[in-house]
Deep mutational scan, measured.
Amino acid sequence: MLDDRARMEAAKKEKVEQILAEFQLQEEDLKKVMRRMQKEMDRGLRLETHEEASVKMLPTYVRSTPEGSEVGDFLSLDLGGTNFRVMLVKVGEGEEGQWSVKTKHQMYSIPEDAMTGTAEMLFDYISECISDFLDKHQMKHKKLPLGFTFSFPVRHEDIDKGILLNWTKGFKASGAEGNNVVGLLRDAIKRRGDFEMDVVAMVNDTVATMISCYYEDHQCEVGMIVGTGCNACYMEEMQNVELVEGDEGRMCVNTEWGAFGDSGELDEFLLEYDRLVDESSANPGQQLYEKLIGGKYMGELVRLVLLRLVDENLLFHGEASEQLRTRGAFETRFVSQVESDTGDRKQIYNILSTLGLRPSTTDCDIVRRACESVSTRAAHMCSAGLAGVINRMRESRSEDVMRITVGVDGSVYKLHPSFKERFHASVRRLTPSCEITFIESEEGSGRGAALVSAVACKKACMLGQ
């Protein structure tokens, strides 16, 4: 009897593995994704193909990295998701002549009506938060230079001027797309009239992360975010950046690689679950690469896999709870928690219980395998993109072996128990001629924006502006 049951459990697990095998990517698959990513990057950089390229390769006008001589107080704003952060950054000489960066910050959550109302409502709310922060720190009387981390696709015309191309991540505030974001912020500050600010720089969160990590390690020339969304930036040779005049030196390019796949480059790798996630998203047909990796989508992918296993009578005796059938019910943090389970399955059992399920031991094991399959594919897909960037940098610099540091931020990278190990191992397999160091950014977005502002202020002083 026991043997029969054991055989049935083994057969069930084997069927589960057959279904989950769809998520496995072979090294040849990853090399294919990497080569296609490089081709799209090239198209994004070139003037004649930029418009139709899915990977936009947006110039950021960040050319210099901090040298350690900029000092002063800077205000930093960070808008990239449902939370908005205001930070005071003091850049100065530390002990023994070292450079020191001290920060104080406060988080504000953005109400739904500000995210989806008008641009005026959104930026009025942001300036209200700045006003509140300055009151708390008794700094209303000071006109501070301000660095703005704005983590949406922007076409820069200068370091302090950028046109919002399109909202992502659930934002829909009308009247912002096609307009200068810094102008919208300046107008809102003017409307309030109770404080003055000098907006000197606007950067993407990947750029802010790279600059913040450069402060720790001067070989950091790539910034990457794996959180709600997924994106990367890197220092490109100016001669390859056709959208900006000049051939000397390097400029940081914001790849906006989340949109890779929007022209069909990933079609052969998309599964039924991916198509369902895409169809029910706020932007169907867009940001397809990001939807395979980002935390906004990972939990939902797992939920759809679990429903398939229920329908195949391989999980929960073929019956799903009402909660499990509800879109968004299986949160991405559950994926991390399930994979963090120590082996007694308590954590998995508790999560499934909150979803109205009474799982068996085998159910718990199957749910864990589903989570591992989805998150491992995410790590491997992400590795193909980064390997594409790094191999490109090595080739354009004609280096036999390139040493490089990548600064990384984002909740999936930082909080998932195995993502970074799987990701690092896969990147290294795909970049055999590179020695890569990964560092995690601390308060990256805010500190990085302030350091970019410090560079901009120093330049302005040198130019006598």
Rank of each mutant, 00 (worst) to 15 (best):
residue 2 L to D: 15
residue 2 L to V: 14
residue 4 D to E: 04
residue 5 R to L: 11
residue 5 R to M: 11
residue 5 R to H: 14
residue 5 R to A: 15
residue 7 R to K: 15
residue 8 M to W: 13
residue 8 M to C: 09
residue 10 A to D: 13
residue 11 A to I: 14
residue 11 A to W: 10
residue 11 A to F: 06
residue 13 K to A: 10
residue 13 K to H: 09
residue 13 K to R: 13
residue 14 E to Q: 15
residue 15 K to C: 05
residue 17 E to R: 06
residue 18 Q to I: 15
residue 18 Q to Y: 04
residue 18 Q to R: 05
residue 19 I to R: 13
residue 21 A to V: 15
residue 22 E to V: 10
residue 23 F to S: 00
residue 24 Q to E: 14
residue 25 L to M: 07
residue 25 L to P: 05
residue 25 L to Q: 05
residue 26 Q to K: 04
residue 26 Q to R: 05
residue 36 R to L: 06
residue 40 E to M: 08
residue 41 M to A: 01
residue 41 M to L: 08
residue 42 D to I: 05
residue 43 R to P: 01
residue 43 R to H: 03
residue 44 G to I: 02
residue 44 G to H: 01
residue 46 R to M: 15
residue 47 L to N: 10
residue 49 T to F: 09
residue 49 T to P: 04
residue 49 T to L: 09
residue 49 T to W: 02
residue 51 E to P: 10
residue 51 E to V: 03
residue 52 E to C: 14
residue 53 A to C: 08
residue 53 A to Q: 01
residue 53 A to S: 03
residue 55 V to M: 14
residue 57 M to F: 02
residue 58 L to A: 04
residue 60 T to V: 06
residue 61 Y to I: 13
residue 62 V to I: 07
residue 62 V to F: 08
residue 63 R to I: 08
residue 67 E to A: 07
residue 67 E to W: 13
residue 67 E to C: 11
residue 67 E to L: 10
residue 69 S to C: 06
residue 70 E to Y: 13
residue 71 V to T: 09
residue 72 G to S: 02
residue 73 D to M: 02
residue 74 F to N: 03
residue 74 F to H: 12
residue 76 S to H: 06
residue 79 L to I: 15
residue 79 L to W: 15
residue 82 T to K: 07
residue 83 N to R: 07
residue 84 F to H: 10
residue 85 R to D: 15
residue 85 R to S: 14
residue 85 R to M: 14
residue 88 L to M: 07
residue 90 K to N: 05
residue 92 G to P: 02
residue 93 E to A: 08
residue 97 G to F: 15
residue 97 G to Y: 05
residue 99 W to L: 08
residue 99 W to R: 09
residue 99 W to Q: 08
residue 100 S to E: 08
residue 100 S to M: 11
residue 100 S to F: 06
residue 101 V to R: 06
residue 104 K to S: 05
residue 105 H to S: 07
residue 107 M to F: 13
residue 109 S to I: 05
residue 110 I to M: 12
residue 115 M to H: 11
residue 117 G to I: 01
residue 117 G to L: 07
residue 119 A to C: 13
residue 119 A to F: 13
residue 121 M to Q: 08
residue 121 M to A: 14
residue 121 M to R: 14
residue 123 F to T: 02
residue 126 I to W: 02
residue 128 E to W: 04
residue 128 E to Y: 06
residue 130 I to G: 01
residue 130 I to P: 00
residue 131 S to T: 05
residue 131 S to Y: 08
residue 131 S to F: 06
residue 136 K to V: 11
residue 137 H to C: 10
residue 137 H to M: 10
residue 139 M to R: 03
residue 139 M to D: 04
residue 140 K to H: 05
residue 141 H to Q: 12
residue 143 K to Q: 13
residue 144 L to A: 02
residue 146 L to S: 07
residue 147 G to A: 10
residue 147 G to W: 08
residue 147 G to Q: 07
residue 149 T to F: 06
residue 149 T to D: 15
residue 151 S to E: 11
residue 152 F to T: 15
residue 152 F to G: 14
residue 153 P to C: 04
residue 153 P to F: 12
residue 154 V to T: 14
residue 155 R to W: 09
residue 157 E to K: 12
residue 157 E to C: 15
residue 158 D to F: 10
residue 159 I to Q: 06
residue 166 N to F: 12
residue 167 W to C: 11
residue 169 K to Y: 11
residue 170 G to M: 15
residue 173 A to W: 12
residue 174 S to H: 10
residue 176 A to D: 06
residue 177 E to A: 12
residue 183 G to L: 10
residue 184 L to E: 09
residue 185 L to M: 09
residue 186 R to W: 06
residue 189 I to P: 02
residue 190 K to C: 07
residue 192 R to E: 00
residue 192 R to N: 03
residue 193 G to I: 10
residue 196 E to P: 08
residue 197 M to C: 10
residue 198 D to T: 04
residue 199 V to F: 06
residue 199 V to M: 12
residue 200 V to M: 09
residue 200 V to F: 12
residue 202 M to K: 10
residue 202 M to H: 06
residue 203 V to Y: 07
residue 210 M to H: 01
residue 212 S to G: 10
residue 212 S to K: 01
residue 213 C to N: 15
residue 214 Y to V: 07
residue 216 E to G: 09
residue 219 Q to N: 13
residue 220 C to P: 13
residue 221 E to D: 11
residue 222 V to M: 07
residue 223 G to K: 00
residue 225 I to P: 00
residue 226 V to M: 09
residue 228 T to E: 11
residue 229 G to M: 15
residue 231 N to W: 02
residue 235 M to L: 08
residue 235 M to W: 11
residue 236 E to R: 01
residue 236 E to T: 02
residue 236 E to Q: 00
residue 240 N to E: 12
residue 241 V to D: 04
residue 241 V to P: 00
residue 243 L to N: 14
residue 245 E to F: 10
residue 246 G to D: 04
residue 247 D to P: 03
residue 247 D to T: 09
residue 249 G to E: 01
residue 253 V to A: 03
residue 254 N to Y: 08
residue 256 E to R: 07
residue 256 E to Y: 13
residue 256 E to M: 10
residue 262 D to S: 14
residue 264 G to M: 02
residue 267 D to T: 11
residue 267 D to Q: 09
residue 269 F to H: 13
residue 269 F to C: 09
residue 270 L to E: 06
residue 271 L to D: 00
residue 272 E to I: 04
residue 272 E to Q: 02
residue 273 Y to P: 13
residue 277 V to M: 10
residue 278 D to R: 00
residue 282 A to Y: 06
residue 282 A to N: 14
residue 283 N to M: 10
residue 285 G to V: 00
residue 286 Q to K: 06
residue 287 Q to E: 04
residue 287 Q to D: 05
residue 288 L to C: 15
residue 288 L to A: 11
residue 288 L to F: 13
residue 288 L to K: 09
residue 290 E to I: 04
residue 291 K to L: 02
residue 293 I to S: 12
residue 295 G to T: 08
residue 296 K to I: 08
residue 297 Y to Q: 05
residue 299 G to K: 01
residue 299 G to M: 00
residue 300 E to H: 01
residue 300 E to F: 00
residue 301 L to D: 01
residue 301 L to I: 15
residue 302 V to Q: 00
residue 302 V to R: 02
residue 303 R to K: 02
residue 304 L to H: 15
residue 306 L to E: 01
residue 306 L to T: 04
residue 306 L to Q: 00
residue 307 L to E: 05
residue 307 L to K: 08
residue 310 V to E: 01
residue 314 L to E: 09
residue 315 L to A: 09
residue 316 F to M: 09
residue 317 H to I: 15
residue 317 H to C: 07
residue 319 E to V: 06
residue 321 S to D: 07
residue 321 S to I: 14
residue 322 E to H: 04
residue 323 Q to Y: 04
residue 326 T to K: 11
residue 327 R to M: 04
residue 329 A to N: 04
residue 330 F to C: 05
residue 331 E to G: 13
residue 332 T to S: 10
residue 332 T to R: 08
residue 333 R to S: 09
residue 333 R to H: 06
residue 335 V to E: 00
residue 336 S to H: 05
residue 337 Q to Y: 08
residue 339 E to D: 08
residue 340 S to L: 12
residue 340 S to W: 11
residue 343 G to W: 00
residue 344 D to S: 06
residue 346 K to V: 05
residue 350 N to L: 04
residue 353 S to A: 15
residue 354 T to V: 05
residue 357 L to V: 08
residue 358 R to Y: 12
residue 358 R to D: 08
residue 359 P to Q: 03
residue 359 P to N: 02
residue 361 T to F: 08
residue 365 D to H: 12
residue 366 I to N: 14
residue 366 I to F: 08
residue 367 V to F: 01
residue 370 A to R: 00
residue 370 A to W: 00
residue 370 A to M: 02
residue 371 C to D: 02
residue 373 S to Q: 05
residue 374 V to H: 02
residue 374 V to W: 02
residue 374 V to P: 00
residue 376 T to D: 03
residue 377 R to I: 00
residue 377 R to A: 00
residue 377 R to Y: 01
residue 379 A to T: 07
residue 380 H to P: 01
residue 380 H to W: 12
residue 382 C to I: 10
residue 384 A to S: 07
residue 385 G to C: 09
residue 388 G to V: 11
residue 389 V to E: 00
residue 389 V to G: 00
residue 389 V to N: 00
residue 391 N to K: 10
residue 392 R to K: 07
residue 393 M to V: 13
residue 395 E to Q: 04
residue 396 S to I: 12
residue 397 R to V: 03
residue 397 R to C: 12
residue 399 E to Y: 13
residue 399 E to S: 11
residue 401 V to A: 14
residue 404 I to H: 01
residue 405 T to C: 12
residue 408 V to I: 14
residue 409 D to S: 14
residue 410 G to N: 04
residue 411 S to V: 11
residue 411 S to G: 13
residue 411 S to Y: 10
residue 412 V to R: 07
residue 413 Y to K: 01
residue 415 L to F: 06
residue 417 P to H: 15
residue 417 P to D: 12
residue 418 S to Q: 15
residue 418 S to T: 06
residue 418 S to M: 08
residue 422 R to E: 08
residue 423 F to K: 02
residue 424 H to V: 01
residue 426 S to C: 12
residue 427 V to G: 01
residue 428 R to H: 09
residue 428 R to L: 14
residue 430 L to Q: 03
residue 433 S to E: 15
residue 433 S to I: 05
residue 434 C to Q: 05
residue 434 C to P: 01
residue 435 E to I: 11
residue 435 E to N: 09
residue 435 E to R: 09
residue 436 I to C: 13
residue 436 I to S: 02
residue 437 T to F: 10
residue 438 F to L: 05
residue 438 F to H: 00
residue 438 F to N: 09
residue 440 E to N: 03
residue 441 S to D: 06
residue 442 E to Q: 05
residue 443 E to Y: 04
residue 443 E to I: 00
residue 448 G to Q: 14
residue 451 L to C: 09
residue 452 V to T: 13
residue 453 S to N: 07
residue 454 A to F: 11
residue 454 A to N: 14
residue 455 V to I: 13
residue 456 A to D: 01
residue 456 A to Q: 10
residue 458 K to M: 06
residue 459 K to G: 10
residue 461 C to P: 05
residue 462 M to T: 11
residue 463 L to V: 13
residue 463 L to T: 10
